[in-house]
Simulated assay, not measured.
Amino acid sequence: MKYLLVLCCIVTLLRCDQKSAKYLSAQDVIDKSIEASGGAKFDSSIIEFDFRDKHYYAERNQGTFKLVRTFKDSTRKITDFLTNKGFERHENNKPVKVPDSMLSRYSASVNSVHYFSVLPYGLNDAAVNKVLLEEKNIKNKAYYIVKVTFNQDGGGEDFEDVFVYWINQESFKVDYLAYSYNETDGTGFRFREAYNERYINGLRFVDYNNYKPKQSKLSVSQLDELFEKGELELLSKIELKNINVD
């Protein structure tokens, strides 16, 4: 009788574990993914890196942030600042007036690179909506798939963009992501494959192979199928260099 009771307890615990794993919500998956990538360390951090011909600097402190982009043209050093208070541009270390028509474009350009550099951090912002899609396998690995949309209020200039994240069921790391965005002639799509993973002072960084589909009439969540079939075109590589974390 004693052994039977122990066996019943083990079976019950296994069923509970299976149930809890099976019924993870989109929020649960994102929380675990953020934790696997550095978690709360992002909240109080200074991150610097180079991307293509520009230098990026991000300072985050429990909800306040300063995102910076610095680059040079033929005659000027241009520094863009995006903070909780808004956007500001300096040329040769002096503030300049930015036309209202360009403010949102410059802000989105600065934010976009910083946003991708620390994913999945940022996916718990108030303007983010998350839905768990049907699980799939890519290259014989099982993935949770989370679809992300944004509220217009707080979602930025590109709030209509749709993102999908393929999160490894064992490691809870984002191995693939895709997004759709509005173009003048329709909807554009991108699919990114993470590689060159490294942890710097406890924070995870990756580079990406950046793909585009050869067809236009599809859903962003279908891009993984085209990737597995080899039907995506490699467009570019997204590489972060000279990363420093404090």
Results as ranks from 00 to 15, higher is better:
Gly39Gln: 02
Gly39Thr: 02
Lys41Leu: 12
Lys41Thr: 06
Ser44Pro: 09
Ser45Val: 00
Ser45Asn: 03
Ile46Leu: 15
Ile47Asn: 04
Glu48Leu: 12
Phe51Pro: 04
Phe51Gly: 03
Arg52Ile: 03
Arg52His: 10
Asp53Met: 05
Lys54Ser: 00
Lys54Ile: 00
Tyr57Ala: 08
Tyr57Phe: 12
Glu59Ser: 15
Arg60Pro: 13
Arg60Glu: 15
Arg60Thr: 14
Arg60Ser: 14
Arg60Gln: 14
Asn61Tyr: 13
Asn61Phe: 12
Asn61Gly: 11
Gln62Glu: 15
Gln62Thr: 13
Gly63His: 02
Gly63Asn: 02
Thr64Gln: 14
Phe65Leu: 07
Phe65Val: 06
Lys66Ala: 12
Lys66Phe: 06
Lys66Glu: 11
Leu67Ile: 08
Val68Gln: 10
Arg69Gln: 02
Thr70His: 07
Thr70Leu: 04
Thr70Cys: 04
Phe71Lys: 00
Phe71Glu: 00
Lys72Pro: 00
Asp73Pro: 00
Thr75Gly: 06
Arg76Leu: 10
Lys77Thr: 04
Lys77Ser: 05
Leu82Arg: 01
Thr83Ser: 09
Thr83Trp: 02
Asn84Tyr: 01
Asn84His: 01
Asn84Thr: 03
Gly86Leu: 07
Gly86Glu: 09
Gly86Trp: 06
Phe87Thr: 01
Phe87Trp: 04
Phe87Val: 01
Phe87Gln: 01
Glu88Asp: 09
His90Ile: 03
His90Val: 03
Asn92Ala: 03
Lys94Ala: 11
Pro95Val: 11
Val96Thr: 08
Ser101Leu: 11
Ser101Met: 12
Ser101Pro: 06
Leu103Ser: 11
Ser104Gln: 14
Ser104Leu: 10
Arg105Met: 15
Tyr106Lys: 04
Tyr106Arg: 04
Tyr106Leu: 09
Tyr106Gln: 06
Ser109His: 05
Asn111Ile: 03
Asn111Glu: 12
Ser112Asp: 14
His114Ala: 06
Phe116Tyr: 13
Ser117Pro: 02
Val118Trp: 00
Leu119Lys: 04
Leu119His: 03
Leu119Val: 11
Pro120Lys: 00
Tyr121Ser: 09
Gly122Thr: 04
Leu123Thr: 02
Leu123Arg: 01
Leu123Met: 09
Leu123Lys: 00
Ala126His: 13
Val128Glu: 07
Val131Gly: 12
Val131Tyr: 13
Leu132Ser: 10
Leu132Ala: 12
Leu133Pro: 08
Leu133Asp: 09
Leu133Asn: 10
Glu134Leu: 12
Glu134Lys: 14
Asn137Glu: 15
Asn137His: 15
Asn140Tyr: 14
Asn140Lys: 15
Asn140Leu: 11
Lys141Asn: 12
Ala142Thr: 10
Tyr143Arg: 07
Tyr143Cys: 07
Val146Cys: 08
Lys147Ile: 06
Val148Thr: 05
Val148Gln: 02
Thr149Glu: 08
Thr149Lys: 01
Asn151His: 12
Asn151Pro: 09
Gln152Asn: 12
Gln152Asp: 14
Gln152Trp: 07
Gly154Ile: 04
Gly155Phe: 04
Gly155Val: 05
Gly156Trp: 08
Asp161Pro: 08
Phe163Gln: 11
Trp166Lys: 07
Trp166Val: 08
Trp166Tyr: 15
Ile167Tyr: 06
Asn168Gln: 09
Asn168His: 08
Gln169Glu: 15
Gln169Phe: 03
Glu170Gln: 13
Glu170His: 12
Glu170Met: 11
